[in-house]
């Protein structure tokens, strides 16, 4: 087994829909499994004080990678993919924006 195959094998448990950390994400073609997060972020448009917001992101296996401008639905909220960022080890983090 190669190193990348070894990692891919490890990701199986992480993305297991029943026992892993991933959840169902609706896409235009059906659904994929991904790990969603949306941590707090203080936006700074150059003003004296910032704006409360968050940075939603979806982590998937690279084989499920979405394209820029794809629309998805997570937990009932529609998002647009603004930047897919593959890490080279079988996962892609997608930066999202509210659609």
């Amino acid at each position: 087994m190669t190193f990348l195959e070894d990692i891919d094998d490890d990701l199986d448990s992480l993305y297991d829909p029943d026992f892993g950390f991933a959840e169902r994400v609706e896409t235009a073609d059906g659904y994929i499994i991904g790990i969603f997060e949306s941590p707090y972020y203080e936006g700074d448009p150059g003003t004296f004080v910032g704006v409360r917001t968050s940075t939603p992101a979806l982590r998937t296996r690279t084989k499920d990678e979405l394209a820029e401008s794809d629309e998805i639905i997570i937990r009932g909220t529609r998002y647009t993919v603004v930047e897919p960022m593959p890490n080279g080890y079988g996962e892609t983090i997608h930066m999202l924006r509210l659609a």
Binding site: Y41, G46, T47, V51, T55, L96, R97
Partner: peptide, 8 residues
């Protein structure tokens, strides 16, 4: 000015 990092 602008900030493009957040959800909007």
């Amino acid at each position: 000015g602008s900030d493009n990092e957040g959800d909007e």
